[in-house]
């Protein structure tokens, strides 16, 4: 059993619009049998936070192309993307690049 963890989520670049315009979220992920990874987090976000039009945020089991993901301010591509295992107090940022310049 992995203990519950708290994480800090942030949505920007327009992605916050899908979360009722709220940019910053302090969240506690419940304990579960295996440690949390990004893939599960996306599912969790979809079920618990996402307010509208999920297709604008997720596609398949990943984020929609054009949404950047930073884990503790580092590009998630450097950290294994969906396989990254979340740590307590991680800071995850989603920035949409899809409009505005």
């Amino acid at each position: 059993m992995a203990a519950p963890i708290t994480i800090h989520l942030e949505f920007g670049g327009g992605a916050e619009l899908l979360f009722s315009g709220v940019k910053k979220h302090h969240m506690t992920l419940p304990s579960q049998s295996q440690p949390w990874d990004m893939k599960q987090l996306l599912v969790w976000i979809q079920q618990n936070l996402l307010k509208e039009r999920p297709e604008l945020f997720v596609q398949g089991d990943s984020v929609r192309p054009g949404i950047l993901v930073l884990i503790n301010d580092a590009d998630w591509e450097l950290l294994g993307e969906l396989d990254y295992q979340l740590q307590d107090k991680d800071n995850i940022v989603f920035i949409s690049t899809l409009h505005g310049g």
Binding site: G12, L17, L68, L70, V93, I95, S96, T97, H99, G101
Partner: peptide, 20 residues
């Protein structure tokens, strides 16, 4: 675009992002 957005983010530039 990815680098521009990250540049702005890391530099904490004040930028506006809302769709028309």
């Amino acid at each position: 675009e990815k680098e521009i957005v990250l540049y702005a983010y890391f530099k904490r530039l004040d930028y506006f992002s809302t769709e028309c």
